[in-house]
């Protein structure tokens, strides 16, 4: 019998890595290897599967005031097509006349098909434990799991898609806030880190691909599955920026910039992270 106390395991691995660092002086790469091993060990029993299962049920179940399932929701490849849909998001939707990422499109479908108010559909984007489970994160887990192994192919054919990319790029390099930070302060060079975590260099193709294709992810330290909207929201918090509004144009533009940069790589999420 084998059970994993994941939080404790995380600390143990972290502690072990520190010891290894001191003893062998292999330095940062060795720590990164140990973290990679830790991730590989957890991948087998990734609790993200629990979110995927809940999301799949939710997708097919008649819900909302209209008592309709989301199976008619058009994620960009036609009504009800989920397979591979995430690899082509964010994209321009003619019916909304707007570039949308997965989360905003799900909100759109919940409003247009299921009859929720927009406020209701958006009110709990990020879950917190058993008392406040987020439907959004479960739906995101299900939809993204249906794109696993498929190559990222985010379109840039519509002018609004190109505009979103350009604005996202600007935002990525825009310095502001109390700490005069930009996304690029941490994600614009190789070898940067926060504590023991290596940060991806999102200005390189390989860096953007590796980072973007492994979100959403189950965060062991939080016991929650986190969407890409959450990832950006938390980056903004860490930069001491004003709160990134869920589903805002700013969040979609930045997502577009990163997603397009990841084009060509096979999508590999929901993943598991520390």
């Amino acid at each position: 019998m084998k059970t994993s106390r994941s939080g404790r395991a995380a600390r143990l691995v972290a502690a072990a890595s520190v010891v290894a660092l001191a003893a062998t002086a292999f330095g940062q790469s060795n720590t990164a290897d140990e973290i990679a091993k830790y991730r590989a060990a957890l991948q087998d029993g990734n609790p993200a599967e629990l979110w995927e299962a809940r999301g799949e049920g939710m997708w097919k179940e008649p819900r909302g005031p209209a008592k309709v399932s989301l199976e008619k929701c058009d994620l960009g490849m036609g009504p009800g097509v989920v397979k591979g849909a995430y690899t082509q998001l964010p994209r321009y939707f003619a019916d909304a006349d707007r570039v949308m990422d997965l989360e905003t499109r799900l909100v759109w479908c919940m409003v247009k098909i299921q009859g929720y108010t927009e406020a209701d559909a958006k009110k709990n984007p990020f879950g917190a434990g058993n008392d406040r489970k987020a439907d959004m994160e479960a739906l995101v887990a299900y939809v993204t799991s249906e794109s696993r192994g498929i190559k990222m192919n985010v379109p840039q054919s519509h002018p609004k898609e190109r505009e979103a990319y350009a604005l996202g790029e600007k935002m990525f390099f825009f310095r502001g806030g109390t700490h005069d930070f930009a996304c690029s302060t941490c994600h614009g060079e190789d070898g940067k880190r926060i504590r023991l975590q290596d940060l991806p260099n999102l200005t390189t193709k390989a860096g953007a691909q590796k980072a973007y294709t492994t979100w959403p992810a189950y965060r062991v330290s939080q016991g929650e599955l986190r969407s890409f909207q959450w990832r950006l929201n938390d980056c903004f918090r860490q930069q001491r920026f004003p709160e990134l509004v869920f589903g805002s144009d700013a969040s979609i533009d930045l997502t577009t910039f990163l997603a397009v940069n990841a084009n060509g790589a096979a999508f590999d999420a929901p993943a598991i992270k520390r």
């Binding site: 019998m1 084998k2 059970t3 106390r5 994941s6 395991a9 087998d44 029993g45 609790p47 016991g223």
Partner: peptide, 11 residues
């Protein structure tokens, strides 16, 4: 109580 949240069991 020492077992993790969302436990994984393999046997």
């Amino acid at each position: 109580p020492a077992v993790a949240k969302n436990p994984f069991l393999s046997f």
